[in-house]
Amino acid sequence: MTLNVVNFTYLMLGVALHGRASRLVASAEEGMKLAGGVVLQFPFYAGIYGIIRGSGLTEVIGRAFAEAATARTYPLFVYWYSGLVNYFVPSGGSKWAIEAPYILAAGDLLQVAKPKIVLAYAWGDMLTDVIQPFWALPLLKAARLDFRHILGYAMLVFILYALLVSLAFWLA
């Protein structure tokens, strides 16, 4: 299920459910208000992605994490590393492109199974999402709040979540 399939389904479903074109257009315009913050901020995060990829910053940080890890703790370190980078590049797919070559190579040296690395990466990609404002923008727009209003609760969720999932990767 790619994004294109999802979008196409939504649009066709929207056409069918609204019945009238004018109503569909009106609600699409409403919906665009939700997407406004994302449109403005996306290029900035894409710029950060550009710097990180171009300069090789991920490898420098990745090496520090990989050197601290043993074969047993490697998934846990991948989890933290992926979480750290996620705060700067909060997109799961494009971040994979800049992180994966290094974490897979380092995982090979320690002989860690590939699926484990993928899962540790995936969970790490969520580790800092809850304290990262980007994906909350539509929600905050609809709620008419700013990120600072929910960050207090979000930080508490983040701490407990990081502990719980770290424990899982440490035990696994």
Binding site: L3, Y10, L11, L34, A35, A46, I51, G54, S55
Partner: peptide, 25 residues
Amino acid sequence: FWGDGFWELLSFAMQMTLIMVSGYV
């Protein structure tokens, strides 16, 4: 690098924008 990255993920940005708009519809 920053300037290169700035516009690199445009199709993903549009997909995301559309997911919100079409989801809202």
